[in-house]
Structure formats: structure tokens, C-alpha cells
Write a protein that binds this DNA or RNA. Structure first.
Lengths: 282, 282
DNA sequence: AGCGACCGATACCCGTAAGGTATCGCCCCG
DNA sequence: CGGGGCGATACCTTACGGGTATCGGTCGCT
């Protein structure tokens, strides 16, 4: 199977429309039809049910969609990592670390300082990204290492080491009646505050339904809390980012959040190994 | 990057010889030279240092060798899993479980029985393979799920659930003076018995140097122990396989062995999820 | 019912690039 | 200094990827 065939199939499977997929791929529709037929013939499997009115994935087709994306990511990653290795050999950029914007705001500087103090540390570029993007960036080779937060992020297909575990706190407007309580229960946060929980974007960028406001990042979130429009439960390290008119109340029964350092399997370059060793010693 | 280019590069990188690589690929040498040059041009990276006398990998080249193999495995896996999904839809073969020959001889039947008793169980094909082959079989889609034994096997790049942890025992000839001891220490097994430890094949099929005999599987191993040529420390579940003239003595200070069930990330089909659920409940 | 619009499949043509053969240039060895 | 081994180059052939034109079937609108 050639990557070209896989790219073509993934495009059709995502669009469920040969014409649109062909436009997206920058080719005409007939060669695309032929390529898909040829792929089906080569695999001996029907991937798409198509009549002249609509295109649908077979069960085998949805397997190939999932697996094909992973394979294409792996091929892209091979190219990117090779280029990065060549740059690195010529004294170029060092490691790329990715984490959610606004998370681990205390841990990250400590971690970078500790690593920078190592004898043969390389420069570390920090990439801040949105929710759920880290895994993709790691898998397709744009990043070398990530800070993830369990149980929110998935570590499936990655190697990890645990760094720290922290309790969660409810972040409320400073003037809210519950802001003086010594602690709250999750159920109370959801009901007593009268404030709806914010809605975070899903992996595909869409938002779930619900009463709360849509939020992208912590700055936006804290501003909405200060305005009395929402409330949220976050790891207690977020306290260092809190605005003056916000209050944080421990929520002992909320699930603890574990920050882990994660990297793609089979890719322990020497600088990466040193970074991981340093961080786990903190 | 096309998979053809990757296959070509991997062949050359493994052979370090354009002529041999071309023969292995079933093409002539000149197109191979051209393809590699083109790949280097496209990546903007020199992958191979070559004069007319020898070919050597650059550091970027060795990265692409490792990453390229993984990417090719992922592409192969996509094809295999798609074909299997199509078969499965037509009532074909179910899950393929792979484990080391001779290991988990007690756990495996229990596990298979428990799963077979589930309401919508599919047939499970059991594949017994040599040391260190499991990861590859999982990654390239020939198997769906494996039983691995930590700390011997690597679970890097796989998702796992722990099943059981067991202590290890020394397996000695029944007549050996130490066979009556209530327990032994690892140091004693290596020195007091006067028997050399066997040598297992490495991932590439070669054997490490040393005095002990080369062994492939447990049957062969136990026969050699009975003959008084070697001794070994194994998880205690191996007792159920012991021949009459062998003795097992606990070795409390040997690292405990954990049997885990492992599967490729992002591939939880419904039958696989059911199998994993069943096994973790045992 | 009939016409038009939409969409995937088919037919046919063209150009590129992958593969083959012959040969060169280089280096080590005898 | 000549021969053999090896990768690079030159040149040819051809298969296949891609384009245009068109068909055939289905839905929707009037």
C-alpha cells in the first residue's frame, strides 16, 4: 500500500464524497475513483458502499480510516524527526515540549530550569496548544515530549512517567457566597453555585451542548468566572494564575489530577532521555 | 514520502550495500541509487555517507531507519487489520492472541475459558511465538492482543492492563544438592549450583556470549536442566510444566514477574474490549 | 411523468517517472 | 599497473497516474 493511496482513501472516507475529496486533494474526480477501486482490489475488501446518491463506510473501511490515519501520521513523523535530527546534528533546535496553555504553570518553569542546569542540555522550545492537541503533535513528530494531565488527556500509545498528583479546587467569583467555605463537594459546585460549568472544545473542535459558556483557554475562562458567568473545578496549581477577584476552594472529593511527562515510544534520543530523567527527579 | 521510498531506504540502511539491497528488493541497482538520492533531496537531508568503498548511516539516517520501520509497520498493520475486519464481518476468524511458548500455562486456559463463556465471544486463535516477537506481531497487525511478562518484555508503544504478579522459582535437577533448600537467593543460584544460566536469543535472533547452553523454548530448556547442564530462574507458574526429575525452589529476592495483557493503542474493537474486560476481572 | 441537476463510473489520451541496460569513474587490491 | 567491486550517470522503455469528455443512474422539482 502506498501512502498516496492511503491519503486518497482517508480524504474520501472523511468527506464521504468523491468530488469534494478530489478537490481537497487537488486532483480530478476520475483518478480518485480509480485509485480507491484499485486499493479495494488490492486489499480484496470493499471499503465504501456507494450508489450514485451517497457514499458510506463499510466496517472494514472505518478500520482502514482509523489505521490509515495512524499510519500516515507515522510516515509524517518519520520525515519530521529525520529532518529535526539533521538540524540537531548541525547545532540546530533542541527539544520541542508541548503542553496545554495555562496548565502546569508552576511545574513547567521549575522543570525547564532544572533541565537547563544539566551538563549537556539542549535548548527546549515550549509549544502551548489547545485541549487534546498534544497527542497528535507527539504522534506526527512536531513535538518530542508533552506534559499531560490525567484523567483528562489520553496517554494511549505513548510512554509516560508520573510527575506530580494534585487535588482540585473550585474557582469562583470572590464575592460568591460559597467562596468563604473551607471546602466544597463536586455535587455542591454543580448545584449550589447556580453557575453552569464551562464547555471545552472536543478533539474535533466542536463544543458539547449545555448551558455553560464556550471557553478556549484559561485567560478567557478566568475572565468569565470574574464576570459571574461560570465556575470550574481545576487542579490547585491554577492558583498561581488566579486574578484578584477570584477565589479557590478545595474540592476534596474531586478526582486527583496527575501530571505526566509523555513521549512517543521508541524515540528516546539522548537529550530527551536526559530531560525525562531530570523531570522525574524533581 | 511514499512507502516505496521508505522500503528502499530501509533495505539500503539494513544492508549498507546498494547492490545487495537492490537484489533483496527485486530491482536493479541504478533505480535504487536514484530513489535514495531523490529521498535525500526531498527531505533536504543526507541519510547515507557513501564513497565507492563503503556505505554508512548518518545520524539522521539512523533516525529514519528506526522511524521508517515503525511507519512501514503501521502501514502494513493498516492493511492487515482492514482485511481482518472484512473477514470478521463475514463471520471469519476472531481475535489473535499471541504469547511466548511455554509461558502463562495456567493463566491462558482460564482466560480463554472465561472469555468463551461471555455472551458474544468470538473465536480466539492462539499464536505461540519466540522471545521478543510479540511486540512486532502486535505492531504490524498480525495479532490483536498479547500476554507479556514484565520486566522481560517491553510494553513501549502498547496499552496494557496488569493481570497477575508472581514470584520466581529456581528450576534445578531433582537430584541437585540445593533442590531440597526451602528457598534460594539469586546470587546463590548463579554461583552455588555450579550450573551456567541458559542463553536466550535476542530480538535479532543472535545469542549473547557466555558459558550456558543456547535455548529456544521451555521444552528444550527443561530437558537441558534434567540433564544437569543448566539451571534457570522462572516465574512460579512454570511449575505446572515441570518434568518429574526437576525441582523448583522459591527465590524470594528475584524480581517479581507481572503478566500483562497488551494491545495496540487505538484498536479496541468490540471483541477485543470484551476480552480485556474479561481477563482483568479474573 | 418528465426534465434537469448531481454524482460516481467509464473511456480515452497524455506526460511523467519508475525501472531496465550499458557504461563510467573511483578506489582498493594484487 | 591492471582487474574487480561498487556507486553514479546516461539513455531508453513503458506502466501508470492524472486530465478531459461522457455515460448512467437517482433524486427532486415542476
Amino acid at each position: 500500500m502506498e501512502t498516496r493511496e492511503l491519503r486518497y482513501f482517508v480524504a474520501v472516507a472523511e468527506e464521504l464524497h468523491f468530488g469534494r475529496a478530489a478537490r481537497r486533494l487537488g486532483i480530478a474526480q476520475p483518478p480518485l475513483s480509480r485509485a480507491i477501486r484499485q486499493l479495494e482490489r488490492r486489499l480484496g475488501v470493499t471499503l465504501l458502499e456507494r450508489d450514485s446518491r451517497r457514499v458510506a463506510l463499510t466496517s472494514a473501511g472505518s478500520v482502514l480510516l482509523r489505521e490509515g490515519r495512524a499510519a500516515l501520521d507515522a510516515v509524517d513523523a518519520a520525515g519530521r524527526r529525520t529532518r529535526r535530527a539533521a538540524q540537531a546534528a548541525h547545532g540546530g533546535a533542541g527539544l520541542v515540549l508541548v503542553t496545554k496553555a495555562g496548565a502546569s504553570s508552576e511545574l513547567l518553569p521549575k522543570l525547564l530550569d532544572a533541565y537547563a542546569a544539566e551538563p549537556d542540555a539542549v535548548p527546549v522550545e515550549v509549544l502551548l496548544c489547545g485541549i487534546g492537541e498534544q497527542e497528535r503533535l507527539l504522534r506526527d513528530g512536531r513535538a518530542d515530549v508533552a506534559l499531560l494531565h490525567l484523567p483528562f488527556d489520553s496517554t494511549t500509545g505513548l510512554d509516560t512517567e508520573e510527575l506530580v498528583t494534585e487535588q482540585q479546587v473550585a474557582v469562583l467569583p470572590a464575592g460568591h457566597p460559597l467562596a468563604r467555605r473551607p471546602h466544597l463537594l463536586t455535587a455542591e459546585v454543580e448545584t449550589l453555585t447556580g453557575l453552569p460549568m464551562p464547555r471545552w472544545p472536543r478533539a474535533d473542535g466542536s463544543y458539547p451542548d449545555g448551558p455553560g459558556p464556550e471557553v478556549r483557554d484559561h485567560a478567557q475562562l478566568f475572565q468569565l468566572i470574574a464576570l459571574g458567568r461560570t465556575a470550574v473545578v481545576l487542579p490547585e496549581s491554577c492558583r498561581s494564575l488566579l486574578l484578584a477577584d477570584l477565589a479557590a476552594v478545595p474540592v476534596p472529593d474531586a478526582t486527583a489530577v496527575t501530571t505526566v511527562i509523555a513521549w512517543p515510544p521508541h524515540s528516546r534520543s539522548r537529550p530527551l532521555a536526559a530531560l525525562i530523567r531530570t523531570t522525574t527527579r524533581l
